[in-house]
Amino acid sequence: MKAGEVQASGPYRYVRNPLYLGSWGMIAAMAFLMPPTGALFTMVLLTVFLMRLILAEEAFLTAQLGEPYRHYLSAVPRLIPRLRTTLPPSSQQPHWLHAMIAEINPIGVFIIFAFLSWSYNNRLMIQAILVSFGVSLVVRALMPHVRKENSTIA
């Protein structure tokens, strides 16, 4: 990254950590299936843990990229997305198919809540979440490029 006008693509123009924010939301949805104290435990611990990961990642990127990244830090909020942005879009092209395959688990969690929750069968939903997680692990293991590109995220 050279010094100059900072550009960002997709959600990174509105929020710096969309993947961590998405992970937090996915786990918050899963917490609806936990006992209340288990949900509280999970959300408190994971919020602290994700914040620690974000701070480490941002410190690393600031050290690596310098002034342009500091400009990006001041222009884009860390976790609460902005509705409008002044940051110009970069030329980065989206890879939607790759993203859909890489994000099988959050898609699975959504499908479970959208369709299975109406059965009011908690055991079935927990089992379905385990299956969704298992499938996402298998897909990542079979597709090395998915694993590699997502190694920088949660």
């Binding site: 959600p11 970069s90 993203a99 809540f113």
Partner: peptide, 23 residues
């Protein structure tokens, strides 16, 4: 769950060397 999945797909789709750069 829907918003989180959408955000993760959107974020992963744009993840790459040019995600944040300087012109």
């Amino acid at each position: 769950a829907a918003k989180s999945a959408a955000l993760r797909i959107w974020g992963t789709a744009y993840l790459g060397p040019g995600t944040v750069n300087s012109s």
